[in-house]
Simulated scan of single mutants.
Amino acid sequence: MLKYTEDHEWLKQDGEEIVVGITAHASEQLGDVVFIDLPEVGREVEAGEEIVVIESVKAASDISAPIAGVITAVNEALSDTPGQVNDDAMAAWFFRIKPAAGTDLSGFLDDAGYQALIG
């Protein structure tokens, strides 16, 4: 089941990890993505900490960690071909994170809540 942030990130539970990317809406707003700087594997992050830089032909944006935890993997393919985000934002995940103890995803938006947010 997917969850969403108000900052247009999607989160998907995969075993003990959470996979994180940006939504198709965010991808459309950014335009053609030309560069993505991903966090280092093993980095411990706090919720709200800016950990990804994404640049498009329109703007540069920071993506924050939606939850606290440790980065367990990054999608290296995005470094070489950042346009994958425009091709299929839901398949072009950015990083996997092992959540800190006690992390609860229930406070994030479900699909209906996210659709209401983007109108």
Rank of each mutant, 00 (worst) to 15 (best):
G31R: 04
V45I: 11
I51M: 07
D87C: 06
L30V: 06
H8Y: 08
L105E: 09
G15Y: 04
T5Q: 10
E44M: 03
E55G: 00
W10C: 12
D110V: 00
V20H: 02
L105G: 07
E6D: 13
I18H: 06
G42W: 11
V70G: 00
E44N: 11
I71L: 11
G102W: 09
S64H: 13
I36S: 02
Q84E: 15
W10A: 12
R43F: 00
V45T: 03
P99I: 10
G21P: 09
S56N: 08
E49Q: 15
D80Q: 14
D14C: 01
V33Y: 11
R96F: 02
T81P: 00
E46C: 06
R43T: 14
D62V: 02
I118V: 15
P66I: 07
E40P: 00
I63L: 15
G21H: 06
D87T: 14
V20M: 08
L109N: 04
P99W: 13
P39Q: 06
D111R: 14
M1F: 00
V53H: 09
K3S: 09
G15W: 09
G21L: 10
E49H: 12
D32R: 04
I118A: 08
L105F: 08
P82T: 13
Q115W: 01
W10R: 09
I18K: 10
N86L: 12
K3N: 09
I71S: 10
Y4R: 04
L2P: 01
D32T: 02
F95Q: 05
L117N: 08
E50Q: 15
D62A: 13
S61N: 13
E76H: 03
E50H: 10
S64C: 14
M90D: 12
G42D: 14
L30K: 10
Q84D: 15
A89R: 02
H8A: 03
V45N: 04
P99Y: 14
G15M: 06
P99S: 11
L109C: 07
I118Q: 08
A60D: 02
A91C: 00
T103Q: 06
V33M: 14
E6H: 13
Y4F: 15
A47S: 12
T72I: 02
D7W: 00
A112P: 01
A68Q: 08
Y114N: 09
G42C: 14
S61Q: 12
D110N: 13
D14M: 10
S56L: 07
F94Q: 07
L109S: 08
D32P: 02
